[in-house]
Design a binder for these strands. Structure first.
Lengths: 214, 214, 214, 214
DNA sequence: GATGAATGAGAGTTCATTCAT
DNA sequence: GATGAATGAACTCTCATTCAT
């Protein structure tokens, strides 16, 4: 009954959210168990319904919290005054590292796609978080074009999705890829190798082709 | 466990597999219901246990069947005698189209990664079905390099994963991306646009650059 | 696990219905417990859902079964060839005795009125059971009028409801009436007394007033 | 448990009682929800326990309040100086109208009978609130007999219960009767018709008959 | 008087699975 | 090959009630 001092400052609500994030990420919406969440949070099961109404309500709260985490981290990236190539490199690195450190993000997004984004669409919050990021990429690309390092005509959303793709896919499907190729693609060296490959590919893909005298 | 070949001729067994593929893809392993599968297959529930032993056994059978489908289609692609750039283009197109026409592949792979490829690793069959693509890509890249159209030093597995990434991610996360960017990225036009973008990016990424004066 | 021989001939479905009738009558729809029903029926709780879909489905089945019991007993009353006064007397006695022997009927009807007959209205079965009874009363009244023993102008549904009222109310509210009047109105003597009172009142109410020379 | 008189001045307590009366009447004791009562009363749930101790305590308070309302209305009826037939007519009308305007009375009485008057018996208050009707009816009958309009030998409790029966039953079972006879017995015209029928039946039942020649 | 947070027990319901035929 | 009946365990969710302030 007596709660340990370590979590007494964390309100129970947050403890539930954290536990739920873990469980939903590990098992999916249908696979996660309310019981498991409540005992992981050391909270009474009833409280989940008190605060979130239902398992789905809790799931949505976790989803929003997870996206907020990502957008918050993105906002801290200050790419505006970097060289365009450096900025893109940072972006790829950030994307790769964030996914690596937050496997729950991948799981939750996959799960949400399984449900055809039914829950995410209810959330207006998430949409607002996104546009500044696209604008940021747009400016990087434009600066790159005017400096002659990037080729013109690239759409920032396309580029963003491509950057996200090459990091996300490798990490999201690491288990099946490792099984099929019979290698450990999750080993530290493999991860570093992949990150470099992604940067290399992306920069080659964006780079202006024609030789330029300087 | 080893079942005789005669069984595969039974229509009920196939009906169960098809229904299960649909349900597992739509709801995930934990979300799918044995009841739903049996009624979709118009088969008695008991037969599922007769043929596959358990829900998990059925799931593994579905997984194998799904990978077999993919590998079979891959094997039909004959890229050996095409120009290297054309071959890559075909590969990207194939990958994109196959994922688009087989959303169950994406769902099942995602699901399997959620379970850390626990089931896939059990399957000896799947490993034998190794993608012929790696060898194919290796040859394409080599030919491209010797013809001077592709830059050297690229690993075929890396390239394969990158090609897979850019198609898969867009399609797998179509629902959440559409929600976040408030666009319909699943519309026919958007899909075509994306396919072209993927080819464009990939070819730029692989292409040998003219030397740059500095 | 081994079921006793006494109920082995009764299919489980019927055992569930009987147990449910008891529980719903004793506790009402919301007060009855599915657990209690299943253990009274010595049936697995799951079977209730297998056969009846839900607690409400079971409740409706009980309701229909209960009305069928009443209508079946009514049908066996053969009042067609009796003297009109005797027929009415029999009817009052029957109604009183049936309610007394089937307190579950009263409980279930009260409960159903609490729910504004929500469930009963779904049942087409119940409506069909009723019309022959009204016709029977109509014929008794007509014969009574033509014989000069009953006054004319009485509607058979009105009369039926009145007959039902005077028996039902006394029995249905026996507990509160006994509490308020501080008497045991459920004692055998009190019941007999009431039955006679009902017959007396009803016959006086129906009887032709004007003196008739014979 | 004995609460001071000052409490009844508090609006919150009364709001709770009113809300509880509504909920208990609409759903029964087991169907009513403490949450629903507190939010209907716009009172904190905790206050229900502060004032009434438990859900059952609240239920008993509601029951007492409801009976008090009935007895109060009964006491206002002054039938002593009316013609006996008029007095009976008024009594029947009053009973019918009171039940019609106070469906919660019916619900609560039904519910209380479901529980075998368990709660009512606990209440000393209710027993003190004896109906003044029995004495009233006794006097009316006696006057009627001495005037030659009513037949002798009728017990006032029997008559009271009969008057209560014919009004109560029709109204209490209005929903099921309407369903069974496929008519709207709750319509204004049907109610008026029934009220007249009740008066007619009762007066005929009580009336002294002219002697019959045989 | 009044309240938000918390709770243990148990509600109805659903699950994958097996029995008997 | 095929089936209807049956099952124990576990599920999500709700209940009346109490704690701490």
């Amino acid at each position: 009954m007596a709660k340990s001092a370590t979590r007494s400052r964390l309100p129970t609500r947050d403890a539930i959210l954290a536990a739920a994030q873990y469980e939903f990420a590990a098992k999916g919406l249908s696979g996660a168990r309310v019981n498991a969440i409540s005992s992981r949070a050391r909270a009474n099961k009833r409280l989940i319904y008190y605060y979130f109404g239902s398992k789905e309500g809790l799931y949505l709260a976790v989803l929003e919290r997870t996206y907020e985490g990502l957008r918050g981290a993105e906002r801290k990236l200050n790419l505006d005054h970097l060289e365009p190539e450096t900025a893109i490199r940072r972006l790829i690195e950030f994307n790769f590292e964030y996914c690596r450190k937050h496997p729950e993000l991948i799981s939750l997004i996959n799960n949400e796609n399984l449900h055809q984004a039914k829950h995410l669409r209810k959330s207006t919050k998430v949409r607002e978080l996104h546009s500044p990021f696209v604008r940021m990429i747009d400016e990087i690309l434009k600066r790159g074009v005017s400096k002659g390092v990037f080729r013109p005509g690239l759409d920032p959303v396309d580029v963003y999705i491509t950057i996200a793709s090459i990091g996300y896919f490798y990490l999201a499907n690491n288990w099946t890829l490792s099984a099929i190729f019979a290698r450990d693609l999750g080993a530290r060296a493999a991860l570093e190798r992949r990150k470099k490959h992604n940067i290399d590919m992306m920069l080659h893909a964006l780079r202006a082709k024609a030789p330029r005298a300087r």
